[in-house]
Amino acid sequence: MMPLLDVRSLTKTYGGRIGCADVSFRLYPGEVLGIVGESGSGKSTLLNCLAGHLLPDAGRVIFDTRAEGPRDVLEMSEPERRMLGRTDWAFVHQNPRDGLRMRISAGGNVGERLMAVGARHYGEIRAQATDWLGRVEIGETRIDDRPSAFSGGMQQRLQIARNLVTGPRLVFMDEPTGGLDVSVQARLLDLIRGLVRRMGLSAIVVTHDLAVVRLLADRLMVMKDGQVIETGLTDQVLDDPQAPYTQLLVSSVLQV
């Protein structure tokens, strides 16, 4: 099987400081990869390099495009990368404000990606927006409300709907449950898991919350000081960690 994303020796430094160093992995269709590590471990740098928000110093990010097969994303032109960013890729920010247009209605937020790829029928755009709001459990009556009138959890669900409406194949998530109440987190995790399974999505989830990756991720990558120090099946890494740092990380989690 062809990997959907093939990352080779990705390196990013900030001056003399290492952001992430020599990261390689393959992501297969339908897989969810969790990247864990504490603040400053390089996990967000890595995610931003993968998603094209940051330019890495070295390495390759090869994506299996629909039309042309495997292409190095870093060698694509800006228009190609942007097109990818609003069709096959999606990015869910930790703070929904970074991923939503706060002055535009929920329906407009969901419809934007459709209009960006050429949808020009208001009724159809609105029907799709309604459908997607339903899928993320936002009532149809809220379609014309602005996200500023929504709770944090609703905003995050709206951001997910806005991202998934064009049927992407790869979703990047940066601490998708960060800053949410625990009960809201559970609901969101359940939602993401259901969508991932039903749509056959591949996802890369960056988080420092081990409970989140246990529920969401098939595989885990543990990062420290910009390096990948351990990878494996999620439950194996969490239940039988090998690296000293991973053991410390796992044993530091408070048990409920």
């Binding site: 800006e78 228009p79 942007r82 609003r86 247009r101 535009i104 209605s105 329906g107 407009g108 419809g111 934007e112 990606r113 459709l114 209009m115 960006a116 790829v117 020009r120 208001y122 755009i125 609105r126 379609i143 014309d144």
Partner: peptide, 22 residues
């Protein structure tokens, strides 16, 4: 300017969408 350069005009229709919805 990037949006113009890349003909990334989805947002313009978002404004018209907002008009109709309101």
């Amino acid at each position: 300017r990037k949006m113009h350069a890349l003909e990334d005009y989805g947002l313009m229709h978002v404004k018209l969408y907002e008009d109709i919805s309101r």
